[in-house]
Write a protein that binds this DNA or RNA. Structure first.
Lengths: 176, 176
DNA sequence: ACGATATATATTGTTCTGATATATTTATTA
DNA sequence: TAATAAATATATCAGAACAATATATATCGT
């Protein structure tokens, strides 16, 4: 599942521009999937070349021109094919947890700072998802994914709050 | 925090080969950080060029020759500098949750299959971390990171078990 | 004796990330 | 009111990372 597949997925819900595809994920699903313009625009270009989407230039008043993409039959077929085979991955890349592994090399003040920041970030993400959930344009399955994200974020935050003091104390001991 | 920093981190715990650096993460911390040889070897080459690590060729009996890397003073300084500034990121890229967002386009049988597989994978990861935790060569902070991983994996698995039937029922309704 | 797994390094093509550039409009705030 | 920030919109590029593959030997279980 690369960015091309991601684009096909969003376009299978309705036509959209590259900007709107990015927003679709930024708004609600940024916790578990982030794609930048540097991936989306080339992906759309290639999908257009391969005939999986069509592109029409829409002039707008008081806005830059849009390129609206629409999925083709071959695009739908490709998307369904991708969904039907293989097992989808779930990857985490956490510089935060990596830093915790190497906590020995951090000052206790810095450690405290990092833990506080992470806890606040998790809280903000939870808030963000909570707000988004109330929208009525969320696709079927979207609520499941958002609920999953909430459960996982909450567990992470609880873990930090319950274990931060012990970790900081450990590192402080080392400092002496 | 790129793969270069990761290598410096592992080497700050003691000398190691590229293979051993990869194993260090595969064994215990693969849940939240994966780096392949395609990133590690070039990173070590660059660190050597820049004088942050030194490399010595160790001939071994009954094993391929090893290149053992040792961190230099400048490497230690660089690593500590990286740890001390900026806020570490925590990124998730889940094709699994993406697939759930687009669950409408899945058959209920396929959805069932994917959910079962994910739940089993989470269970296996939990098991793996549980075993690893009993080792006595885990750096300070490592237990915190492993505990975080366990909390998050468990929350994910619980969420799937508690919500899978409702989601599958929803999708089945759509099928009719 | 055979096949699978472990040890060990390396390359290559493809993809992704992060930063930057450009341009206009709307909303905010001082 | 004027300046500034944020939103809308597309695009490119260097550098980083990923996934797959190649090569070679040794061990371990069956």
């Amino acid at each position: 599942m690369d960015v091309k597949t991601l684009c096909l997925g969003v376009l299978s819900l309705g036509e959209a521009s590259g900007y709107e595809i990015k927003k679709f994920f930024e708004d609600g699903f940024s916790h578990f999937y982030v794609a930048g313009f540097g991936s989306i625009y080339p992906a759309l270009a290639q999908l257009t070349r391969d005939g999986h989407v069509t592109c029409s230039n829409i002039e707008q008043e008081k806005r830059p021109a849009k390129k609206v993409y629409r999925i083709t039959n071959s695009g739908v077929a490709l998307f369904h094919h991708e969904l039907a085979q293989g097992y989808p991955s779930h990857k985490v890349r956490s510089d935060f947890l990596l830093q915790m592994v190497f906590a020995t090399f951090l000052s206790s003040a810095r450690l405290d700072e990092v833990l506080t920041q992470r806890s606040e970030d998790l809280q903000a993400e939870l808030q963000h998802i909570g707000n988004y959930c109330e929208r009525d344009d969320i696709p079927q399955g979207g609520h499941f994914a958002l609920g999953y994200a909430q459960a996982v974020l909450q567990a992470g935050r609880d873990y930090i709050e319950n274990n931060r003091d012990a970790l900081i104390a450990e590192i402080k001991e080392k400092d002496l």
